[in-house]
Design a protein around this nucleic acid. Structure first.
Lengths: 151, 151
DNA sequence: ATGCCTGCAAAATATTTGCATGTAA
DNA sequence: TTACATGCAAATATTTTGCAGGCAT
């Protein structure tokens, strides 16, 4: 007996998100619109599938975890998201599509962004023969000062 | 009825590997010595737990996958290996301990090394207040030229 | 002899897939 | 109407853990 999912999106953002999905060739379904709203309406975000699922539930959106995974993978496939491998065993998805550096606090789990200044010709020069560079992922792992050595 | 594991290691490498493990505080057990031999006797390597387990089996070394995981984690904990997050959902361990760049071919799965030139003060400057940089991981993802867009 | 190490299996975690049903075009 | 999307559950995949027995010191 929950309200229709569309009512959870503001009339301002709904048409924009709908258009954005259509441009990628993805159908603007209710679940995709709701997840897109959570992802793209609040600045740059780094989320795990589990975390996004939790946010959706909290927002009253009915969506299964499998659909969250499928949606994140589709969004990545069409270039709406980047996947970040900062911690093996768990995937994070990043709404910041520009080349940048991830600062990962190994103790708190926080993930910050920092700008990356890398001339395109340098990136291309790194690719071995007969390959082209697709992206560069930089992760700087930090700890609180004076913390112990081991994870 | 397999031969003693020690016999699989050359008399030249055995004492070196034994000493290396002792220096880290790890007991030089047969399984650890055999895995260390596979890891450290052939230049820089990038291996997954599963792959290393397979190599050990092929070499006639009796070792369980759980022990491979435990051993890789211990080796990393004492600084003999670095862990690489190039592909979420699977861990790779790297015997090259110096700061460097990973060139990852997304299509073939190959992983190459490239030197990283980064002044230490630049790395430190990236760490937010009250944190210190522990390491920097750079992964350049490449594809064969003219390959399609999607993973 | 003591305490760390191993093997096995089971548990824990993370992600993908099959299929019947639902929904956008 | 037709093809694509969703939900659910089960299947996969990866890694960790508990415990009885083994081995290095």
């Amino acid at each position: 007996m929950s309200p229709p999912m569309k009512d959870l999106l503001s009339p301002t953002r709904l048409p924009l998100l709908t258009e954005r999905l259509k441009l990628t060739g993805l159908r603007p379904t209710q679940q995709r619109l709701a997840l897109a709203d959570l992802l793209f309406s609040a600045g740059d975000r780094h989320v795990s599938a589990e975390a996004l699922h939790g946010e959706a539930q909290a927002a009253g959106v009915s969506v299964s975890l499998a659909t969250v995974y499928n949606t994140l993978n589709r969004f990545r496939a069409v270039g709406l998201l980047k996947e970040v491998s900062v911690d093996s065993g768990r995937s994070y998805f990043d709404t910041n599509l520009s080349p940048h550096i991830h600062i990962f606090n190994e103790v708190s789990g926080e993930l910050y962004d920092a700008p990356l200044c890398l001339r395109p010709e340098v990136l291309e020069a790194l690719a071995p023969a007969h390959t082209q560079a697709v992206s560069v992922d930089v992760v700087v792992r930090v700890r609180p000062r004076h913390a112990s050595q081991e994870a």
